[in-house]
Design a protein around this nucleic acid. Structure first.
Lengths: 232, 232
DNA sequence: CCTACCGATCGGTAGG
DNA sequence: CCTACCGATCGGTAGG
């Protein structure tokens, strides 16, 4: 299969979500089981035999779909890093109040990780030190720079506390991580949406100079038909 | 060597901090290199040969100091989980305003991870699924319950926003993690202390109903000789 | 997608 | 703390 663009990946994931993993094409089932086992046992702890046994094929058959074990990892890292980096970068250069754009990004981010049909908990930053995966460091840098750009725009506009700037990417990473973690448990969509909003509001409360901005931004977002991670 | 109590572990770590790792006893050097390599390559990715080569001994010599590779991991998990759990539990049952105790705990926590001479970045929660390590789940539960206890006390006292309760352990975990990460870079102690205080204030801003409580608590803490992680 | 198989590396033991 | 060595498992290839 040819290399997919980010948009194609997003569309493909959206289509998969409508079907149980057991009915996915073999290639996607390999990704699914690999993600699950890497999350549970780490990249080196999840063997290609573990993965293929869970899929229900013999170990060498895996290499018909992926050139190497690392190629699977790279595909998962693209979902973890490349797509959020592109979205954050886009919003950091968009029109509108910084406080509104940060809120919009956080809701998108938490939905992206929360609705992800693959378990990305094993995608640790330290994996980027593996030979051959250094390129993903650029995505991580793009993401951090984009978030910090929005926050600095907010400080310049007087919307955000200056002291909090350095903490935002840290807290956002921690929250996205926890969203990924809790999303693996069965929950109803309404509870999940409420949790995502609660997480975004937590960050805004720590950031804004004027608490009235929070209510204003939330009201505006609730009125607007939201552009979701999956319907682009 | 007999099993150490938490207090003995803390005292031992404090003593090590005064000496470069190259001069530590072999057993501690094994812990040091194991922590470093597990952080970089994951538990299964860091082999006993990697570790012993870094220490400067032959691979089988390791088993004179530890019964198994997992025994090393267990010792590192105790530093990561058991000691903070005990400290949080203690503070959750102490006297004083909840907002002050949460601030006190956060400064202790960030200092604990920030001054740790071993690299604990590889100590992922998922490792607790390994057979033989289930007992550490109890420490993690103790920690979460203790933090949530303090936060609920704060809500009951009218000091904290009710909505934020569920986010605190998540955000604290993310922040401690980032403190561990950045602590591996060389920094002067004054900058590090300022960063720890900034992280604690970020959480308090998201939590408190009355911003004046923050200034009051910080002023009180700055006046009191602080009880640190290492001088007990 | 399969069977058969490769060299390399794994955690751990025996015995000094 | 060492040398010598064990069986098990690793990622990947050959050839159909």
């Amino acid at each position: 299969m040819a290399v997919m663009t980010n948009d194609e990946r997003v569309a493909h994931l959206h289509a998969l979500r409508a079907v149980p993993p057991a009915e996915w094409p073999t290639r996607d089932r390999i990704l699914y089981e690999a993600a699950r086992l890497i999350a549970a046992k780490g990249y080196h702890g999840a063997s290609t035999r573990d993965i293929t046994e869970a899929v229900g094929i013999r170990q060498p058959s895996m290499f018909n779909h992926f050139a190497s074990k690392q190629a699977i990892l790279a595909e998962l890292l693209a979902l973890e890093l490349s797509i959020p980096a592109a979205r954050a970068d886009e919003l950091s250069r968009a029109e509108g109040r910084p406080v509104a754009r940060l809120y919009q990004y956080m809701l998108w981010d938490f939905e992206w990780y929360g609705e992800m049909p693959l378990d990305l908990r094993g995608m640790q930053e330290e994996l980027l030190d593996e030979p051959g995966l250094e390129a993903f460091r650029a995505d991580l840098e793009t993401w951090k720079k984009a978030i910090n750009r929005i926050v600095r725009q907010g400080v310049a506009a007087g919307e955000f506390e200056k002291d909090a700037v350095g903490m935002v990417t840290t807290v956002l990473t921690g929250l996205s991580w926890e969203i990924v973690r809790t999303a693996q448990l069965a929950r109803d969509p309404r509870t999940a949406a409420k949790q995502r909003k609660g997480a975004a509001l937590f960050v805004l409360r720590a950031l804004v100079t004027d608490p009235r901005d929070i209510a204003a931004v939330v009201d505006a977002a609730d009125d607007t038909p939201r552009r979701t991670a999956t319907a682009r």
